[in-house]
Amino acid sequence: MNKVMKVKMMLILVGICLTIHMPKGYSQSTEIAQLLLNVAKWEALQENLKTLKKGYEVLTKGYKAVKDISEGNFNLHDAFLGNLWQVSPTVKNYKKVSEIIQTEIRIIKEYKSGFQQCLKSGQFSANELDYLERVFKRVTDESVENLDELLMIITARQMRMNDEDRLNAIDAISVDMESKLSFVRRFNASNQTLLFQRIKQHSDLELQKRLEGFPE
């Protein structure tokens, strides 16, 4: 027997006792009705409390579910961003990585070769040599910056990028490095042309001087 039934039985017994022992003139039916009404109110209160409890449990479970989902999404998001710090073998083994390094080596080698040729020729003034050196230095400084960026792209925990972005960035560096190498070659070719012209002019002048020194 549950608590509600026990209370009902107790109130019925109380009502019977009141009916037997209550003095005449007292409204027995009214008292019993009031007691039964109180039982009904108590039952209703119990049901309300149960409903509130169920509602709280549903709310709690719902909040927990939302919280778990939210944390789950955050964990997935965090894991995704964490993966962006990593560098896949596809990026590390991309052929243009080694090509960029080889291009840098050619830039330095051809720059030094061209500058040394102008320096040893004796056909360029100090100001001209200073200008050539500054131009070469600017190009090599920019190419070194490209290598620094490349190193960051292919090194884990340096840049947050997916594979496609990393490969696109490497492609852009490759294009820029090839452009710099082409510039160094054109610049060297231009200086070499000027050098040959001056050597020829000097040779022609020396020949003219010798011819002018011969007796008629």
Results as ranks from 00 to 15, higher is better:
Met1Gly: 06
Val4Met: 11
Val7Ile: 15
Val14Ala: 15
Ile16Asp: 05
Ile16Arg: 08
Cys17Trp: 10
Ile20Arg: 06
Met22Leu: 09
Pro23Gly: 02
Pro23Cys: 04
Pro23Ser: 07
Gln28Tyr: 03
Ala33Leu: 10
Leu36Ser: 11
Leu37Tyr: 12
Ala40His: 09
Lys41Gly: 00
Lys41Trp: 15
Glu43Pro: 05
Glu43Asp: 08
Asn48Val: 14
Leu49Asn: 10
Lys50Trp: 02
Thr51Lys: 15
Thr51Arg: 13
Leu52Gln: 08
Lys54Gly: 03
Lys54Tyr: 08
Gly55Lys: 04
Glu57Ile: 09
Leu59Lys: 14
Leu59Ile: 00
Tyr63Lys: 12
Lys64Gly: 01
Lys64Asn: 11
Gly72Ile: 04
Asn73Phe: 12
Ala79Ile: 10
Ala79Cys: 05
Leu81Met: 14
Trp85Cys: 02
Trp85Ile: 01
Gln86Gly: 04
Gln86Tyr: 05
Val87Gly: 03
Thr90Ala: 14
Thr90Val: 13
Thr90Gln: 12
Val91Gln: 04
Lys92Ile: 06
Asn93His: 08
Tyr94Glu: 01
Tyr94Met: 03
Ile101Asn: 11
Ile105Ala: 12
Lys109Trp: 04
Glu110Val: 10
Ser113Met: 09
Gly114Tyr: 09
Phe115Met: 06
Cys118Asn: 11
Leu119Cys: 04
Leu119Gln: 12
Lys120His: 09
Gly122Ser: 06
Phe124Tyr: 13
Phe124Asn: 03
Leu129Trp: 05
Leu132Met: 12
Arg134His: 09
Val135Trp: 00
Lys137Met: 07
Lys137Ile: 00
Arg138Ile: 02
Arg138His: 08
Val139Pro: 04
Thr140His: 03
Asp141Met: 04
Asn146Lys: 05
Glu149Leu: 14
Leu150Glu: 03
Leu151Glu: 14
Ile153Asp: 05
Ile154Ser: 02
Ala156Trp: 02
Gln158Ile: 00
Gln158Tyr: 01
Met159His: 02
Arg160Phe: 04
Glu164Ala: 02
Asp165Lys: 14
Ala169Asn: 08
Asp171Gly: 01
Ala172Met: 08
Ile173Met: 05
Ser174Asp: 11
Ser174Trp: 08
Met177Gln: 15
Met177His: 09
Lys180Ser: 07
Phe183Ile: 01
Val184Gly: 02
Asn188Met: 05
Ser190Val: 07
Ser190Ile: 04
Asn191Ala: 14
Asn191Trp: 13
Gln192Lys: 10
Leu194Asn: 05
Gln197Pro: 00
Lys200Asn: 09
Gln201Phe: 08
His202Met: 05
Ser203Arg: 13
Leu205Gly: 01
Leu205Asp: 08
Glu206Lys: 09
Leu207Gln: 06
Leu207Phe: 03
Gln208His: 05
Lys209Gln: 10
Arg210Glu: 11
Glu212Pro: 00
Glu212Leu: 07
Phe214Cys: 07
Phe214Met: 10
Phe214Asp: 04
